[in-house]
Simulated assay, not measured.
Amino acid sequence: MDISGKVAIVTGSGAGIGAALARRLAAGGARVVVTDLDGAAAERVATEIAVDHPDSVIFSAGDAADEATLRDLIARTEAEFGPVDLFFANAGIAGGLGLDSTEEQWNAALQINVMAHVRAAKLLVPGWVERGSGYFVTTASAAGLLTQLGSAPYSVSKHGAVAFAEWLSVTYGGKGIGVSCLCPMGVQTALLDTGFSAGDPSAELAARAVRTAGEVLDPADVADIVVDAVADGRFLILPHPQVLEFYRHKGSDYDRWILGMRRYQEALLAADGV
């Protein structure tokens, strides 16, 4: 899909990948809704974008996993800009760590990293089918194809995000609906800086695993890759090409891959002196 002239909502766009996506979409001629749980952060990003694109951006504060909030967000977008063409389900959290993760941490990760996508799709996809066009972009993670050392809720919820994106594409791809699923490794964001750094060995393991697996990318570079993929209609977006190689190794010999992941984990723990 060509983003020029289109209307896009980007959740979790007060910082990181979401903010970079909002900037890139506006630069490409789209009208953008910047929305984040942190309303002040969303306003800052929107204000920055408005300097060069004054009539192309608005902001909103709210929980991307709350259906009423999503319904109001879509209604406001339609009133300000017209029908939504693209939805970027980008909001995400790290969740808890290992088996010590609380029920609240598990629930939060599943709500924000998976159910927020489901609820947005329920509200948007039927109308897109009637129009014969629409595009849904899921920000998942390489953890959704592989796994995340240290954080069980993050890994499980990101697998769920990938699975839902796959289902959405299989079910509606023949009806004019585009779907892409972004699965990066390390990106320089607050999630990487603080979400996996709680002073706990499992948190430090998660952060080190991401940082040592490959290059840590700038969010703006990831946004460029995403917009190119949307233009091409590609489902799987891999800013780190080696993820595909890892994924192929996993599929070709699952037991060997798990053994390799155990060894990788042991090496990281040994390097941390654990």
Rank of each mutant, 00 (worst) to 15 (best):
P153Q: 05
S197A: 15
A143M: 00
T194K: 14
V118I: 14
G127T: 04
A26C: 11
A50Q: 09
E166L: 05
K158Q: 07
Q188P: 00
A267F: 07
P241D: 03
G5H: 04
P153C: 08
S252A: 15
A161G: 14
A65M: 02
A143R: 01
K6A: 10
H117F: 13
A229P: 09
G95Q: 08
A40T: 12
A271Y: 07
S169C: 08
I237A: 06
L149C: 04
E166S: 11
V118K: 03
A8H: 09
F87T: 06
Q111N: 13
A89T: 03
V84Q: 06
T194E: 15
A42T: 02
G150T: 09
V7H: 08
A143Y: 02
L269K: 12
H117S: 14
D200F: 10
V10I: 14
G134D: 06
E78K: 13
S151I: 08
A65P: 03
V118M: 04
Q265L: 00
E166N: 12
A61C: 10
M261D: 01
G214P: 02
S252H: 08
G251Y: 03
S252M: 09
R211Y: 03
T171L: 10
R23H: 15
L73S: 00
S169A: 15
P126Q: 03
A220R: 12
L269Q: 14
I225V: 13
T77P: 01
A116G: 15
W167N: 14
A30N: 06
A161Y: 06
G195Y: 08
I225K: 11
A22C: 01
A20Y: 05
V32I: 11
A61T: 10
Y247L: 09
T77Y: 03
L269W: 06
G14V: 00
A270S: 13
Y135C: 12
V34P: 01
R23Y: 07
C181F: 06
E80K: 11
A22L: 07
A209Y: 05
A270H: 01
F81T: 04
A190V: 12
R76T: 12
V10G: 03
V243A: 10
G12V: 09
G233C: 11
